[in-house]
């Protein structure tokens, strides 16, 4: 094989493309094997999604409206979770007593399936906006708390001492030592908290709402329109991928500028490249 062609096959971009193509082909081949006639071909799903993107839909909400509604609830709920979680996390990180007092309950909150939060909120508040937002808060606040408190404990004491030895002001140290060392933890709370909040939100919308992306997917499910469910499933994935690429990765690149680049590992670290998943 000529060198250029071999390089082409070996490139990671080709791998990505092949992976998408083989997924579509595999799907098309799988349809006749499935025990149902409900499953649409990739083409039908594509058609559905294209119609949705042109805002041409049978559902009460277009895909834009549905995702906008959900996003609004997610941001509101997570904002409140930050307001509640950061102070509690700070207290837990700073005072051992508070940590001992609250620890077990935070752990319970972390491990509780978001389904339980969604159903409880639904039973408590019924079909109102509040149910969804409260589900988001309940599902994400413990992630904020635990990460902030871990972050506080991980603040490098030696660097604080160094700052003190050079006579810097408290404010200066907070800004240049405490905050930067907290960043990875805040970032983790953002990532995991939002992910879990999003999962809870979708469930809450299914069981206690009449709008939003979760409710719309249920609309298609109840209507037995599989291309609707799968199409929406793909919208969810695209949404998550966009959030990862456009928001999280950029934010993390910005916040962690000072870290050595992950794309070019130092020669001696060959084979220990960080995973970017």
């Amino acid at each position: 094989m000529p060198r250029g062609l071999r390089r082409f096959w070996r490139s990671t971009r080709t791998a990505r493309a092949i992976s998408i193509v083989s997924f579509l082909v595999g799907w098309q081949l799988l349809i006749p094997l499935l025990p149902t006639a409900l499953i649409p071909t990739p083409f039908e799903v594509g058609e559905f999604m294209w119609a949705e993107l042109r805002a041409d839909t049978l559902a009460p909400e277009t895909v834009y409206q549905a995702f906008a509604t959900s996003l609004r609830r997610l941001v509101t709920g997570f904002g409140i979770a930050l307001l509640i979680g950061i102070p509690i996390g700070l207290l837990m990180g700073l005072f051992k007593r508070v940590e001992e007092f609250l620890h077990d309950f935070v752990v319970v909150g972390l491990a509780m399936p978001s389904l339980v939060w969604a159903l409880i909120a639904a039973m408590w508040f019924g079909f109102v906006e509040r149910s969804s937002i409260i589900t988001v808060i309940l599902a994400s606040v413990t992630f904020v708390i635990i990460n902030v408190s871990e972050g506080v404990r991980a603040v490098p004491k030696d660097l604080l001492d160094m700052g003190r030895a050079y006579g810097t002001s408290d404010l200066h140290r907070v800004r240049h030592v405490v905050l930067p060392s907290l960043m990875p933890f805040l970032f983790a709370s953002l990532r995991y908290g939002l992910a879990n909040g999003w999962k809870g939100l979708v469930l809450a919308e299914i069981y206690a709402s009449t709008s939003g992306a979760g409710w719309t997917i249920r609309f298609w499910y109840d209507a037995r329109r599989a291309q609707g469910v799968i199409g929406y499933a793909l919208f969810f994935m695209i949404f998550a991928l966009l959030a990862e690429r456009l928001v999280f990765r950029r934010l993390s690149d910005r916040v962690f500028r000072w870290r050595p680049s992950q794309d070019q590992p130092p020669p001696e670290a060959e084979g220990s490249v960080q995973v970017n998943i």
Partner: peptide, 22 residues
Amino acid sequence: EAFFSDWVLILMTTPGLIFVLV
């Protein structure tokens, strides 16, 4: 890694509910 990484990422971030419904 390039072949699978996007799918793995997508599967992890998509709410499990979606797969349950499908």
